[in-house]
Design a protein around this nucleic acid. Structure first.
Lengths: 346, 346
DNA sequence: TGGGTCAATAATAGCGCTACGATTAATTTG
DNA sequence: CAAATTAATCGTAGCGCTATTATTGACCCA
């Protein structure tokens, strides 16, 4: 008996059922070749390719992205941080982005900032620990620490849904103040002179505030002192109804209103109907968002339609380009614009 | 000069700026202790803890979750697959789940199946390659391969938003046919006898179909042959309006309708208003979803409210429990119920 | 006072994969 | 026909971390 150098029992580790080596063994090639096949199939001979894919099928092999990401120092994840996916605007962007990224086999890691910069900072930290292929944030306003965290990363940092402020890397969106301007100019063009803005949650939602500011400014430029009536909570039809009633109580001669979004506008229309206020004869209403109900309501709502899914697609396109090694030449800005849908409410 | 054994220059690798070893060095402890501190702070002495957290702050250290996940054979990611986050129901669940999981420092990886089992299968495969802490799917109907992929994983597999079929592991949701039953019984209780169901996308949305079926069955049980009018596209107010017009053309004596969801119901209300059909006097309307506008419209909509955010919270709770080592004793089922909100439309 | 216990820390051995250079085989060309 | 090129494949050395075992020192009590 050789009790010389008796080794203690090896310590056990957790493991994955089927690894790349298993595939390699079954396919009679080296693990390197399997890896190469998975990453650049065109660099592997037809015979080897065939053997490998057969082995993969047979073993039901699922590659371990953690191991791959660790070795390659970057993962196939894209982190996207939005205020909330409950908000139809961001849901649209997230959805279109996920669809576009799927083709690149990139996965979306989702985070909700709830309009809180502190929360966002924490989420950015968590996001970065995945070594993502890109980070997507909402808006241009972030904490100093967030900015610092993202300043020197080698991956694309994309800020969406806002344009017109200092940006970290690339921004994709539009100018919200211009939305307000467009709404005001439209109402003025329709002959309205007593303008009012109905806003929700504007202390938190910077972009709603910008739309409001643009509206006021354009009115002022036309010699009109537009009013504002607002509510601190999240936009909803219910709040829209309340706001409209309050607005008409405070400013009974109002003849044109713009709303921070279509939920508010819808609520305003409901209130008008209940109070027998003729829209648009007595009061013109303009919304923002062109949500699913906006063309169907009574009367159909004039609204400004942002391009939420274009934003997502453009972001995905940029990320893809970066992945394929295209140069990102300094801070870029993509204006996805918006369009005014003129319907019968104005 | 020792030119014996001249080594070729080591090949360079990509890297992370600050690693755990850097922290350990600065804090004058071993990397093991830093790792321990990060995972079980209570097992590390106060002095060491202090030194380590100081070092982490100073270096702005962000742990690499890929490395951690690889070593631990499981990641801090939870994969959630829903038809689409554009759908307010799933947005709600995703949102509440993300909020709950955030406390456990778990991240959500999102995928959209678009009601396609093949797509779902591919997404499950991608999801598993992250070695997630749990997988959440929508509904109980999946491809055979999906089922096979998930059958033997050691993590929780949670199916949400549907109950009443064969489940993989745990299901959290409610019985959609019971929703249909509740709607029918409510309308019958209100004295309606000429019932009709307005449905959208029912060939793809199994759960909408189940609600419809439950409705028809309950009507039949009461001796009523309820009608169905449907549209293949995604539910929207516009389609709701169209469907209502068509329904009344085909079945002019209808006096009670249930809708596959509140978008459809809202559109139906809009159409009624335009066509001067008195709701509820001439026609009672019941929706499903209790969406943000449902209490505010004219008349306020009677609807069945599912518990989308409870589903998300329960799922998060289960995942958390599993993470803390609690036993999952066989297939489980959590019925989150629904409630009928009786408002003036019926 | 000496073994036993416990708390705190450290050393070790991978997790599964990719990147890089090295090797071999196949093909071209002066 | 040898040298040079190209195509295909392989071997090696980690990526940054965790889990496990080993080690250290402090404290206890008979």
């Amino acid at each position: 008996m050789d009790n010389t150098m008796r080794k203690p029992p090896r310590n056990r580790r957790k493991m994955q059922s089927v690894t790349m080596s298993d595939v390699a063994e079954l396919a009679n090639v080296s693990p390197s070749t399997v890896s190469l096949f998975l990453r650049k199939p065109e660099a592997v001979s037809a015979t080897a390719s065939q053997a490998i894919s057969r082995a993969i099928d047979k073993l039901n092999y699922v590659p371990n992205l953690m191991a791959g990401g660790l070795a390659a120092a970057s993962s196939r994840a894209v982190s996207i941080l939005v205020p909330s996916v409950r908000n139809a605007f961001f849901a649209e962007t997230v959805s279109s982005m996920q669809t576009a990224l799927k083709k690149q086999r990139l996965q979306l890691i989702l985070g909700h900032t709830e309009y809180d910069e502190q929360e966002e900072e924490e989420l950015v930290r968590m996001a970065l620990s995945w070594a993502p292929a890109a980070v997507v944030l909402t808006g241009l306003s972030h904490s100093a620490a967030t900015r610092r965290l993202l300043a020197n990363v080698a991956i694309p940092v994309i800020e969406i849904w806002e344009l017109g402020g200092p940006q970290i890397d690339t921004a994709i969106g539009f100018h919200h103040d211009q939305v307000g301007v467009a709404a005001a100019e439209h109402l003025i063009g329709q002959g309205r002179r007593n303008l009012l803005f109905l806003g929700a949650r504007m202390h938190q939602d910077r972009r709603a505030k910008q739309r409001c500011d643009g509206f006021l400014q354009a009115a002022r430029a036309a010699g009109i002192a537009a009013k504002v009536v607002e509510h601190p909570d999240t936009a909803s039809a219910e709040i829209g109804s309340m706001l409209l009633s309050e607005a008409l109580r405070l400013h009974p001669d109002t003849d044109g209103i713009a709303c921070s979004n279509d939920h508010i506008a819808l609520g305003a229309l409901f209130a008008c109907e209940r109070q027998k206020i003729a829209v648009p004869d007595r009061l013109a209403v303009v919304g923002f968002g062109d949500l699913s109900f906006s063309a169907a309501c009574n009367p159909p709502l004039t609204t400004i339609r942002p391009s939420g899914d274009l934003i997502g697609r453009e972001a995905a396109r940029l990320i893809e380009a970066h992945l394929h090694g295209e140069k990102t030449d300094g801070p870029r800005q993509i204006d996805t614009r918006f369009t005014l849908q003129h319907r019968r409410s104005s």
